[in-house]
């Protein structure tokens, strides 16, 4: 996939576990796992906003584009 989700990198930088993030952003572990493993087909702005708030980062820190 051309869009890479760097959620795991940001979580490692903030030293936050998946469970902790799940509680903070009010998303199920299953959905966060889909996002983390790059299986997600789309992400809502509201989800992106809450993840950015919880991890104190910018959308660009979570998403990247690669030419492949």
């Amino acid at each position: 996939m051309a869009i890479i989700v760097n959620l795991d990198v940001m979580m490692a930088k903030r030293k936050m576990s998946l469970n902790e993030l799940s509680e903070k952003v009010d998303l199920t572990l299953a959905n966060l796992s889909i996002l983390k493993t790059g299986k997600a087909k789309a992400i809502r702005f509201s989800t992106l906003e809450s993840i950015c708030k919880a991890l104190d980062c910018q959308p660009g820190d979570l998403l990247a584009f690669s030419k492949d």
Binding site: N31, A40, I43
Partner: peptide, 8 residues
Amino acid sequence: QSENDLTV
């Protein structure tokens, strides 16, 4: 439906 299921 599968796209909808994989929308987080």
